[in-house]
């Protein structure tokens, strides 16, 4: 039971539009990668945020780290967030803090270790992710490159040693070598830390073989598959059309 980090029972996201999504039930286990794929980014982010508890549910029950999200008050919700990290497309760094202060802030705030230890852990993570130009860590995010800011967001998310990491289209703006490097880095965290990753992606070729759950979402279809083979066997026309677009056979 402790290995189940997310337990979703017949959940579907509430939406501002008239769209009604088919419900989904799944368990997300420790050390797993769950990919949310599909033709529309709106549906993918909606499902990602619903599984994270950030988006309201139209129906169903969601248990995050053994806690039912409907029963959490504000303080309990905030308390849960230091075990769950989320990096969205528009996740921001604090503009008034240096890159290093940004990285250390959540761990210091939650008093996970003393300052020196957190700084050492940040250094290790920055080396592992391949952060170049460490002298920039004393600068504000506005003076760093987009890639440096990007890596800082990932390291800041991991410095608290989360059990769950939610990523919204992480690989989209990266070159292929950076994608491979980041993929390897995150794979290592899944294996070594027991981290579970839930991600949306357009770059499905890069992730589909790694995934332990694949959720296909579109306005009319919500389907769960355990691996690439299961997905390829699907008779659903919209899934077939989507896969052929990416030349996945």
């Amino acid at each position: 039971m402790k290995n189940i980090l997310i337990k979703a029972e017949n959940i579907s996201p509430a939406s501002n539009s008239d769209a009604v999504y088919s419900p989904l039930s799944l368990n997300i286990l420790k050390s797993s990668i769950t990919s949310i794929i599909g033709p529309g980014s709106v549906e993918k982010i909606l499902w990602l945020k619903t599984l994270n508890g950030l988006n309201a549910m139209a129906q169903g029950e969601l248990t995050l780290l053994q806690k039912n999200v409907r029963q959490l008050d504000r303080q309990a919700w905030l308390g849960l967030q230091n075990k769950i990290s989320f990096i969205g497309q528009d996740t921001a760094l604090l503009s008034a803090y240096t890159l290093m202060e940004n990285i250390m802030l959540p761990a210091l705030y939650h008093k996970l270790a003393d300052r020196d230890e957190i700084s050492r852990q940040a250094d290790v993570l920055l080396d592992e992710i391949g952060f170049e130009g460490k002298e920039m860590l004393k600068q504000l995010p506005a003076y760093a490159s987009q890639l440096q800011n990007y890596y800082v967001k990932v390291v800041r998310a991991l410095i608290v040693k989360p059990q769950l990491l939610f990523l919204d289209d992480l690989y989209t703006h990266l070159s292929l070598d950076k994608v491979l490097n980041l993929k390897q880095f995150l794979r290592h965290k899944v294996d070594s830390m027991g981290l579970s990753i839930v991600l949306t992606t357009r770059n499905i070729k890069q992730i589909i073989d790694e995934s332990t759950n694949i959720i296909f979402v579109s306005p009319d279809t919500t389907a769960l598959y355990e691996n690439r083979q299961d997905l390829l066997k699907s008779d659903n026309a919209s899934i077939k059309e989507y896969l052929s677009r990416y030349e996945i056979h």
Partner: peptide, 11 residues
């Protein structure tokens, strides 16, 4: 969205 980022870090 810096405030949102803080809340997502449990701050």
């Amino acid at each position: 969205k810096e405030i949102e980022a803080l809340e997502l870090m449990g701050i």
